[in-house]
C-alpha cells in the first residue's frame, strides 16, 4: 500500500468536512477498498473512515412502510435486522463470509458498484431510493456502469429506502472462489408490477431485464419466462464463464427466483 493519512470522524458533519480535503476518499467497511489499496489499484492521499459515524448505522421502518437502512450498516446487521424484507435479509446473509459481513456495509457496496456485487441487484430490483448527504437518488438513476455511480466527490450514502414488495427473491449463482455472483437475479413483485434486476452478467453492471418484467407482471410464474432469452453480447466473458453462458444463467436464475418468491 502507498502511504496515506486516515481520519475517523464521529459525526456525519465531520466526515463531510474531512472529505473536502484534496484526494480524500471515503472508507466504508473496507472489504473491497483495502484489498484494492494493497494491490495499489487506488492511491488516495487521505481516507475518511465512516465506521465511527453512528448516525448512518441502523435499520428502521419509515412512515410510508419503507425499510430504511443506514449507509454504514453492516451486511451482518442487515441479515439480522431486515426481517420485514426477508429477501433482502437473505441476500445480506449470503454476501462473502461471516467476518466480511461483520465489516462490509451497504453504502460501501453501492458506492463501489462492483458489477458482480449483490446489493446493487436488491436496490435496483426493489426500486429503492439512495439517500446521500446532498440528495435522494432513485435506483434507476444511481447506477451508471461498472464501478460507476452518479455519486459526486465527497457525497456519502446515508440511507437506502427499500419499498417492501409483496414477494421477492434473490438467486445467486456463485463464482466458487470469490463467492461473488457469477450471475445474481433479484425479482420483486409489487402491486403495480414486477421488477427484475441482474448483477454479475453485464459489462455495464447491474441492469433491469425489461422483457422479463413485462412477462412476469402479466403472470408471475416461471412458465411466463418461456422463450425469453438475452444475448451474450455485452455480457462479461472471462475464465469463469463466457458471455453466452452468463446470458443463459440469467434466464435460469430468474426462473428460480420467481419460483422461490412464490
Amino acid at each position: 500500500m502507498y502511504a496515506f493519512e486516515i481520519d475517523r470522524p464521529n459525526t456525519l458533519a465531520d466526515a463531510v468536512k474531512a472529505l473536502g480535503a484534496e484526494e480524500a476518499q471515503a472508507l466504508g467497511g473496507g472489504q473491497t477498498l483495502i484489498p484494492a489499496l494493497k494491490q495499489r489499484l487506488a492511491s488516495p492521499a487521505r481516507l475518511v473512515a465512516l465506521s465511527g459515524v453512528a448516525e448512518i448505522k441502523g435499520i428502521c421502518t419509515g412512515d410510508d412502510g419503507a425499510l430504511c437502512i443506514g449507509g454504514g450498516t453492516t451486511h451482518a446487521d442487515v441479515a439480522a435486522g431486515a426481517g420485514a424484507y426477508p429477501a433482502l435479509a437473505a441476500l445480506a446473509a449470503n454476501i462473502g463470509d461471516p467476518a466480511v459481513r461483520n465489516r462490509g456495509t451497504i453504502g460501501g457496496s453501492l458506492a463501489n458498484n462492483d458489477p458482480s456485487a449483490c446489493y446493487p441487484a436488491a436496490v435496483l430490483g426493489s426500486g429503492a431510493t439512495v439517500v446521500t448527504t446532498n440528495r435522494q437518488i432513485a435506483a434507476d438513476d444511481f447506477f451508471e456502469g461498472m464501478f460507476t455511480t452518479t455519486l459526486e466527490d465527497g457525497e456519502i450514502i446515508t440511507e437506502v429506502r427499500f419499498p417492501v414488495p409483496e414477494a421477492a427473491s434473490y438467486q445467486k449463482f456463485e463464482q466458487p472462489a470469490s463467492r461473488f455472483a457469477l450471475v445474481g437475479v433479484f425479482v420483486a413483485r409489487f402491486a403495480d408490477g414486477v421488477r427484475v434486476a441482474v448483477t454479475g452478467a453485464s459489462e455495464e453492471g447491474v441492469f433491469r431485464w425489461s422483457e422479463a418484467e413485462a412477462a412476469l407482471s402479466k403472470d408471475f410464474a416461471p412458465a411466463a419466462l418461456e422463450g425469453l432469452s438475452l444475448s451474450g453480447d455485452g455480457m462479461i466473458s472471462d475464465l469463469h464463464g463466457s458471455g453466452d453462458y452468463r446470458a443463459h444463467l440469467v434466464a435460469v436464475m430468474t426462473r428460480r427466483a420467481v419460483a422461490a418468491a412464490g
Binding site: R8, Q31, I34, A99, V100
Partner: peptide, 26 residues
Amino acid sequence: DTSQCGACVVHVDGRAVKACTMFAAE
C-alpha cells in the same frame, strides 16, 4: 493477506473480523 483465508480472524467488539482487512486506526 487478501481476506480469503481467515487465519487472521480476531474479535473486534465481540465480532469476528479479518484483521488483515481492517486498519488499526479503526
